[in-house]
């Protein structure tokens, strides 16, 4: 079991790095979906004694939402926009990657030094989770588009989800499901607002064109 968890966590770190260097929105959405699917397996592998069904419920719910529902929502929002599909970063891709590698090293340093009272299911879990939280925050502040910020939010939640697996024994399922529901609604509302942002700004552009035409003699 330990090996499978490690592989998933390596996948989490790798997808984060790919996201930092990715320039296409469509690609980024696909990578976040893949990340969500991989994380859905995590509760199944990390669950404790007698908590198989809750783990299945949580894992399946998380995988369906993050792997299928969110990407569909975001793709829909993307389709409506006539803006370019480039990500338009504030911080360049190479710089982002370099910063990411630095953050990864820090996460490992911190994770190794953190005196957890009990052994996590995998020594990678805390560093990978922390790195994902960092990547999410970085994407939110260093990318220009609203849709990339939503992706950053999802990546950050993925990191918190991975960190939460350390506590899989102690967190009540109801809370985990409540968290999942909140994130679902949050991304749903964000998706709607992204849709409005696209429409509103298209709308304004066309309005201004109209106003100019009226003003011309």
């Amino acid at each position: 079991m330990g090996n499978a968890i490690d592989i998933l966590l390596v996948l989490l770190v790798l997808t984060d790095l790919v996201l930092l260097g990715s320039s296409r929105l469509r690609n980024a959405i696909r990578i976040v979906a893949l990340q969500g699917l991989a994380l859905g397996l995590l509760p199944l592998l990390a669950h404790g004694r007698g908590r198989l069904w809750p783990a299945i419920l949580l894992g399946a719910g998380s995988a369906v939402l993050k792997g299928f529902v969110f990407p569909a929502l975001l793709r829909r929002a993307l389709r409506e926009t006539r803006a370019s599909r480039e990500i338009e970063p504030f911080v360049g891709y190479i710089a982002s990657l370099l910063l990411g590698v630095g953050a990864l090293a820090l996460s490992f340093g911190f994770g190794a030094r953190l005196p957890l009272p009990w052994a996590a299911p995998s020594p990678w879990m805390v560093p990978a989770g922390l790195f994902s939280v960092w990547t999410g925050l970085f994407l939110i502040v260093a990318r220009r588009k609203a849709i990339t910020q939503v992706l950053g939010y999802v990546v950050m939640e993925n990191g918190i989800f991975a960190l939460g697996m350390v506590l899989v024994e102690a967190m009540p399922l109801l809370v985990e499901l409540g968290v999942l529901l909140d994130i679902f609604v949050a991304v749903f509302v964000m998706g709607i607002i992204v849709f409005h942002i696209n429409r509103e700004f298209d709308h304004i552009d066309s309005d201004q064109l109209e106003a100019l035409r009226e003003g011309a003699p």
Binding site: G164, L167, M171, V175
Partner: peptide, 18 residues
């Protein structure tokens, strides 16, 4: 909240509360 669970759990990881 996670950290509170860690603070309250016993050494084998059980018994954490919120």
């Amino acid at each position: 909240n996670f950290l509170i669970v860690v603070a309250s759990a016993s050494a084998d990881g059980s018994g954490g509360t919120l």
